[in-house]
Nucleic acid binder design. Structure first.
Lengths: 355, 355
DNA sequence: CTGAAAGCGCTTACAG
DNA sequence: CTGAAAGCGCTTACAG
């Protein structure tokens, strides 16, 4: 059942049938109606999309490469919100979004093997096989929260500015014993001065940058707690636990999810937030406002980020020059998880305590 | 830059190059290495996926049709969890998931126009254009939480059993003034006996079924609050507000999100949960355990649902017969948002009060 | 192990 | 307004 089947039934040529479906202005209303109704009768669903894609050189599909697998990425509300916004904007423009896992196990590398017109790469390193494959195919690409790559437009938020505000907020409240909880950095409760702050994640790098700048200005050397992994994992949880053995008065976390992790673990040990430990997150995850105490965090506009990524890619598809828009703004949102440090209670092992 | 370019450079035929990429066992190690390295030198990324899809009759892409647009669907953690599980399972099998919006605005109907090997239809009515297009294309389809359709395997949870347990829980606690909050049903604070409980949503239908059965057994006639829309909208919010003018002692909500809506509105009016009003949700959304008071709800296993949908589709793609697995189990999770009704305080307008 | 032939199902200029 | 020709870039049996 192809164009030809219909053509023979109606008694016209194949391309007249093709025109009936794809270029209505190329034939009479009447003939078109006859063709379409014949197609309907025969149960022909329309031109085969794969054949059409080959002939037109256009698929209507845009790829989305996520940090790890979609399975991992979709545990993060921020990533989900981004995908949602991109899918929405692209859908309005007539494109559909295909989710590509970046790590090609089982020999399948979707970024190389799936037919598409362009791709959005979210939070990925340039060395990833998915990114390489996309570049080799010379597909229009937009990078989002990724390491900059020459010629590839980049969308991102102003992580450093947001982080600076977050750290300054703690300093202004009077905190000086501060811990930083991150991923993509191997650090087990060590002073920042003792370790290298190099990380493969541009997002973390930006945030570290902002935090450290504000803390250095205040003469504060934070304790670093981090995992080599990209997400919250057992290693990080264990190190957070160790941190709480002798807790700082405040914590800067690389995400709201990490901040909630700290809050939950603190609660398990009856350490009060914010009375004994202030916690600041990042992202303004929908959860942040709903937990108790509500989380102080740095807000970013996920919808705007998704919309921006979609629009830049769309302009690339129109063969317009690639431009990276300015970094999207971030803003501190002060809620209930931060307060002034209370005077340090004497600890049991403190020589000044007891008799 | 095609297979031919490489073939000419190496001095072999096109299909030897094709074999080098697609059927390594068809040529010598040595020749293959030469071809691959020539391709690499020339910057050839591999066989064009669109051409390959046409020739092979296989794209490696599976479509996912969501109730409304991906934009709407992705506001719901339950739908997101489902997409996540499906994308994960399908990814393991070498397939990528393309998000299809069901309502073809702007003339684009992705379900008709996108090349794919099969599709999963989530929470859709059979009349939807996306579903029709998929059927006309004779693509393998799996329905999830959708109205049954002959020949199409169906995956779903046991909504009725879960709802029954939820309603029974309230009845057992001693409640008799109970309201039911739903979508996909137009009801403005009316007794269930006064209206038709017909709904286009199979999910809601199943839940209504379970709730009503338990309530009827207890001789309770619930008040119905619903919106014709498919999601929580302004209409539903207004009707919930009206319900709270003279609140029931307990509410059964069609989702955790709807339950949270009730709880938030109750809080705004200083109506205590659960002391003055018990609330039961549905789904066991990740939020349910985190809000305060923690929400009593009916748990469903989203991961299992996604995995089941993927496996059934995969078996269809292997041309195995279509079988609908049994409905997935649900279970009541009792948390802090439900309690015995306290004795009704005399209301101001109550003749027994004051005087 | 290698290649010539046929085919996958459409669309794009272009001529009439 | 309609159609004959060329082409999109690959793969699948199959013969040698």
């Amino acid at each position: 059942m192809t164009l030809k089947t219909i053509a023979e039934h109606v008694g016209v040529s194949r391309m007249t049938v093709s025109n009936a479906f794809s270029r209505p202005d190329q034939l009479s209303e009447d003939l078109r109606a006859r063709i379409l109704s014949a197609a309907d009768d025969l149960g022909y669903a329309g031109p085969d999309p794969a054949a059409r894609a080959l002939a037109r050189g256009r698929t209507g599909v845009i790829g989305m490469v996520l940090t790890n697998s979609p399975r991992d990425a979709f545990t993060d509300d921020v990533a989900v919100g981004f995908v949602r916004a991109v899918a929405g904007s692209l859908g309005d423009a007539g494109y559909s979004l295909v989710l590509l896992h970046s790590s090609g196990d089982n020999g399948v590398v979707p970024a190389r093997d799936i037919a598409m017109d362009g791709a959005i790469v979210y939070s990925c390193a340039p060395a990833m096989s998915a990114f390489t494959a996309l570049r080799e195919r010379r597909l229009p690409i937009v990078n989002v929260e990724s390491l900059p790559f020459p010629g590839v437009p980049d969308i991102g938020i102003d992580d450093a500015a947001g982080a600076y505000q977050a750290a300054k907020h703690l300093v202004d409240l009077g905190h000086s014993r501060i811990a930083i909880v991150v991923a993509a950095l191997d650090a087990d409760n060590l002073p920042s001065s003792d370790i290298s702050l190099n990380t493969a994640s541009p997002t973390i790098a930006g945030r570290l940058d902002g935090w450290m700048r504000a803390l250095e200005q205040a003469g504060v050397v934070p304790t670093m707690i981090g995992t080599p992994g990209l997400v919250i994992d057992a290693v990080l949880r264990e190190r957070i636990d160790r941190m709480l053995d002798d807790p700082p008065t405040a914590v800067l976390a690389f995400s709201d999810l990490a901040a909630l992790e700290v809050m939950e673990r603190a609660r398990d040990r009856d350490i009060l937030v914010p009375e004994q430990i202030s916690v600041v997150g990042f992202d303004d995850n929908p959860l942040a406002a709903r937990v108790s105490p509500a989380l102080t965090t740095v807000r970013q506009d996920i919808d705007a980020k998704g919309e921006a990524a979609a629009q830049v890619l769309l302009s690339l598809l129109r063969e317009e020059p690639a431009v990276s828009p300015p970094r999207l703004p971030t803003a501190l949102v002060v809620r209930a998880s931060t307060s002034r440090p209370r005077d340090r209670a004497p600890r049991e092992s403190d020589p000044r305590a007891g008799g």
